[in-house]
Design a binder for these strands. Sequence first.
DNA 1: TGAAATGTTGGGGCG
DNA 2: ACGCCCCAACATTTC
Length: 480
Amino acid sequence: MDNVLTLVWFRKDLRLSDNPALAKAANRGDILPVFILDDVSQAMVTGASAWWLEQSLKSLDDSLGGALNVFCGDPLVIINKLCDCNNISHVVWNRCYEASEVTRDKYIKSALREGGKTVETFNGRLLYEPWQVLKKDDTPYKVFTPFYRRGYQGVFDQFPEPLPIPKRLVCVHKDSDSIFIDELGLTPKKTPWFEKLESQWSVSEKSAHRSLASFIDHKICNYETDRDFPSQDTGSHLGPYLHWGQISPLQVVSQVRRQVPFPRSESFLRQLVWREFSHYLLFYFPRIAHRNLKSEYDCFPWGDNPTDLTRWQQGQTGIPLVDAGMRQLWQTGTMHNRVRMICASFLVKNLLIHWKHGADWFMDCLLDADVANNSAGWQWVAGSGADAAPFFRIFNPVTQGEKFDAHGEYIRKYIPELSALPEKYICSPWLAPASELAVAGVELGVTYPKPMVDLKSSRQDALDALKHMKQENARTQQAE
DNA sequence: TGAAATGTTGGGGCG
DNA sequence: ACGCCCCAACATTTC
């Protein structure tokens, strides 16, 4: 067999197994593995996510025997130079789907081809690519359920088997211009925050598979019923691994269907399809990252009160369940899914702050920060998305706490200053008699804030704002 | 993948 | 036994 050197451009597919681009290259001969931090990717890695990326790169570099070439700059210039210096005519990568990535990749692909290179790109990130799932009239789905039925429900056993790690994987010597991963400046300072993350997460392809295995062994069977209770650790923790591609969705599906009889696995796999749907929406409607998908929400009177925003970010709203969620986010780089909805609802509806501010904060703090999932999630809560929750569904964080954190375990864990309160008042300390507060060592406004808004009246304000928005829209429509 | 307001029903206490 | 009221438990409607 000929041995032809191929350049593999790694992006959000930082793994060796089930990596179609890598498999193709390895099949042709030796490989030159490359990671490039460019303007497009840099704009998308902030905060916690940058820390994860740095760990991912180190782990990938290890798996490649230290051969990963790392650069910072313009990918076209760098790839061209690498091709020239190493006499490479073949470049491969796995596709990304965010608008700026698509634009960049299209440009680079055509430029490389004009320069006489062969470029091949693959799907290593989604079960189906966006253009593979369309309605009968060839337009994209905007509603989850029909999307789910069309391509996924009941046919999880029809996806192909994921690719193994290439049997022969030989990297050429490292390019002399390659910099060290640390030099990318992803985590400029060794802060206590990063150290905290380090103690909680192991970032590698192996760890991703360990997480999946443990989830399948212990949690997936009761996922549907348990997943709503934030005090229990019922999640798969696969979010950040999926984002950076330490594991592929195809590998998840394959492993799940091998070990879990179908009806039991449905509710989890459905979540994986929400991830697909988010990527799909972002591909067809790139504006969801920044603007309301439903334009009638453009005149919703959302504000950006910086003081309120800060209190929300810091978990000092005085509403225990919201504060617990926001503190979990800050301390762990993740937040329980139901609590995400509750915290988001509180910001957008009770505080009337634009979802974009919440989305930005989540992008900064979440280890699984992902533009597709994040913007789809926020627009879902805000009511402005494609298949969104109606705006008038306003979560009551007290009721939600009583339903899903009945003993207050989750709240106590993240708000130690309330931990001695009896469960009757843990979700609403402002209703506790002074004597109970005193016994628990709580002084409202001192040891823990008073609620920054009244839940009942702020809810009414939100509904009034919605009414206002509808009137505005009716008026402009009439004017047209 | 809500919550509150409003409507309906039915059991039990009571005169 | 009967009507009446109260109210909890659901059900329906509305935002």
